[in-house]
Protein backbone atom coordinates (compact mmCIF):
# COMPACT_ATOMS: atom_id res chain seq x y z
CA UNK A 1 0.00 0.00 0.00
CA UNK A 2 1.38 3.39 -0.97
CA UNK A 3 0.78 6.61 0.91
CA UNK A 4 2.26 9.73 -0.64
CA UNK A 5 5.41 11.09 0.97
CA UNK A 6 4.86 14.31 2.86
CA UNK A 7 6.71 17.55 2.28
CA UNK A 8 6.27 19.37 5.59
CA UNK A 9 4.85 17.54 8.59
CA UNK A 10 5.32 14.52 10.81
CA UNK A 11 5.63 10.78 10.53
CA UNK A 12 4.74 9.12 13.83
CA UNK A 13 6.29 5.71 13.45
CA UNK A 14 6.60 2.51 15.49
CA UNK A 15 3.19 2.96 17.10
CA UNK A 16 2.14 -0.23 18.80
CA UNK A 17 -0.26 -1.96 16.42
CA UNK A 18 -3.79 -0.95 17.30
CA UNK A 19 -2.85 2.22 19.20
CA UNK A 20 -2.96 4.69 16.33
CA UNK A 21 -6.62 5.63 16.76
CA UNK A 22 -6.01 6.45 20.43
CA UNK A 23 -3.22 8.84 19.45
CA UNK A 24 -5.40 10.23 16.65
CA UNK A 25 -8.22 11.07 19.04
CA UNK A 26 -6.02 12.15 21.95
CA UNK A 27 -4.21 14.69 19.76
CA UNK A 28 -7.49 15.84 18.19
CA UNK A 29 -6.13 15.08 14.73
CA UNK A 30 -9.71 14.75 13.53
CA UNK A 31 -9.96 18.55 13.90
CA UNK A 32 -7.17 19.19 11.37
CA UNK A 33 -7.89 20.37 7.84
CA UNK A 34 -4.66 18.92 6.40
CA UNK A 35 -4.11 15.38 5.18
CA UNK A 36 -3.72 12.81 7.96
CA UNK A 37 -3.02 9.18 7.13
CA UNK A 38 -3.43 6.34 9.59
CA UNK A 39 -1.74 3.17 8.44
CA UNK A 40 -2.50 0.14 10.55
CA UNK A 41 -0.77 -3.20 10.87
CA UNK A 42 2.30 -2.33 8.82
CA UNK A 43 4.78 -5.23 8.81
CA UNK A 44 7.65 -4.50 11.19
CA UNK A 45 10.95 -6.31 11.60
CA UNK A 46 11.09 -5.58 15.34
CA UNK A 47 7.53 -6.07 16.53
CA UNK A 48 5.81 -8.00 13.77
CA UNK A 49 3.43 -5.17 13.00
CA UNK A 50 3.03 -1.51 13.84
CA UNK A 51 0.89 1.52 13.09
CA UNK A 52 2.02 4.75 11.47
CA UNK A 53 0.41 8.20 11.39
CA UNK A 54 1.40 10.79 8.81
CA UNK A 55 0.42 14.44 9.24
CA UNK A 56 0.90 16.70 6.26
CA UNK A 57 1.44 19.92 8.19
CA UNK A 58 3.87 21.16 10.87
CA UNK A 59 1.33 21.56 13.63
CA UNK A 60 2.06 22.08 17.33
CA UNK A 61 2.49 18.46 18.40
CA UNK A 62 2.35 17.46 22.08
CA UNK A 63 5.17 14.92 22.23
CA UNK A 64 4.59 14.31 25.97
CA UNK A 65 1.04 13.20 25.21
CA UNK A 66 2.29 10.77 22.56
CA UNK A 67 5.04 9.47 24.85
CA UNK A 68 2.45 8.93 27.56
CA UNK A 69 0.09 6.99 25.31
CA UNK A 70 2.73 4.91 23.61
CA UNK A 71 6.36 5.28 24.73
CA UNK A 72 8.70 3.87 22.12
CA UNK A 73 7.16 5.62 19.15
CA UNK A 74 9.41 7.62 16.86
CA UNK A 75 8.45 11.06 15.64
CA UNK A 76 10.10 12.21 12.43
CA UNK A 77 9.88 15.90 11.59
CA UNK A 78 9.83 16.45 7.83
CA UNK A 79 10.73 19.76 6.25
CA UNK A 80 10.99 20.25 2.50
CA UNK A 81 10.77 16.51 2.05
CA UNK A 82 13.75 15.80 4.35
CA UNK A 83 13.80 14.33 7.86
CA UNK A 84 15.26 17.17 9.94
CA UNK A 85 14.67 15.62 13.36
CA UNK A 86 13.99 12.15 14.66
CA UNK A 87 12.86 11.69 18.29
CA UNK A 88 12.36 8.36 20.02
CA UNK A 89 9.83 9.06 22.73
CA UNK A 90 9.91 7.80 26.30
CA UNK A 91 7.46 8.06 29.16
CA UNK A 92 7.55 11.75 30.08
CA UNK A 93 8.75 12.54 33.60
CA UNK A 94 5.96 15.06 33.93
CA UNK A 95 2.52 15.36 32.35
CA UNK A 96 1.19 18.89 32.18
CA UNK A 97 -2.39 19.51 31.07
CA UNK A 98 -2.80 15.99 29.66
CA UNK A 99 -4.75 14.21 32.38
CA UNK A 100 -6.78 15.52 35.33
CA UNK A 101 -6.83 14.60 39.00
CA UNK A 102 -10.02 12.85 40.06
CA UNK A 103 -9.43 13.17 43.80
CA UNK A 104 -12.24 15.36 45.17
CA UNK A 105 -10.05 16.28 48.14
CA UNK A 106 -7.30 17.67 45.88
CA UNK A 107 -6.80 21.44 45.81
CA UNK A 108 -6.97 21.27 42.00
CA UNK A 109 -10.62 20.17 42.28
CA UNK A 110 -11.65 23.53 43.73
CA UNK A 111 -9.05 25.90 42.32
CA UNK A 112 -9.53 25.13 38.70
CA UNK A 113 -7.05 27.62 37.31
CA UNK A 114 -4.26 25.45 38.72
CA UNK A 115 -2.37 23.51 36.06
CA UNK A 116 -2.97 19.76 36.14
CA UNK A 117 0.49 18.28 36.66
CA UNK A 118 1.43 14.66 37.24
CA UNK A 119 4.90 13.26 37.86
CA UNK A 120 6.12 9.81 36.90
CA UNK A 121 6.34 8.02 40.27
CA UNK A 122 6.98 4.47 39.09
CA UNK A 123 8.34 3.94 35.59
CA UNK A 124 8.16 0.15 35.73
CA UNK A 125 4.46 0.07 36.54
CA UNK A 126 3.68 3.35 34.72
CA UNK A 127 2.30 5.13 37.75
CA UNK A 128 1.77 8.87 37.55
CA UNK A 129 0.83 10.82 40.67
CA UNK A 130 -0.75 14.25 41.04
CA UNK A 131 1.88 16.72 42.28
CA UNK A 132 -0.61 18.29 44.70
CA UNK A 133 -2.24 15.31 46.42
CA UNK A 134 -0.19 12.28 45.24
CA UNK A 135 -3.34 10.57 43.95
CA UNK A 136 -2.58 7.93 41.36
CA UNK A 137 -3.59 8.96 37.85
CA UNK A 138 -6.48 7.10 36.37
CA UNK A 139 -5.60 6.53 32.75
CA UNK A 140 -8.22 7.51 30.25
CA UNK A 141 -7.67 4.22 28.49
CA UNK A 142 -5.94 0.94 29.03
CA UNK A 143 -2.33 1.68 28.21
CA UNK A 144 -0.48 -0.70 25.92
CA UNK A 145 -3.45 -2.81 25.01
CA UNK A 146 -4.93 -2.68 21.59
CA UNK A 147 -8.20 -0.98 20.80
Amino acid sequence: MNIDAINNGYVIDHIKAGSSMRIYHFLNLDKLDCCVAIIKNVPSGKTGKKDIIKIDELIDLDLDAIGYIDPGVTVNVIKNGEIIKKSKLELPKELRGIISCNNPRCISSTEQELPQVFRLADEENIVYRCIYCDAKAEHKFSLYSSG
Binding site: N103, R105, C106, I107, S108, S109, T110, E111, L114, C130, I131, Y132, C133, D134, A135
Partner: peptide, 10 residues
Protein backbone atom coordinates in the same frame (compact mmCIF):
# COMPACT_ATOMS: atom_id res chain seq x y z
CA UNK B 1 -3.29 23.98 57.49
CA UNK B 2 -5.90 23.41 54.81
CA UNK B 3 -8.58 20.77 54.26
CA UNK B 4 -7.61 20.38 50.59
CA UNK B 5 -4.67 18.15 49.75
CA UNK B 6 -1.86 20.06 48.07
CA UNK B 7 -2.92 23.54 49.22
CA UNK B 8 0.40 24.21 51.03
CA UNK B 9 2.31 23.20 47.90
CA UNK B 10 0.28 25.70 45.88
Amino acid sequence: RHPKEGAPLV
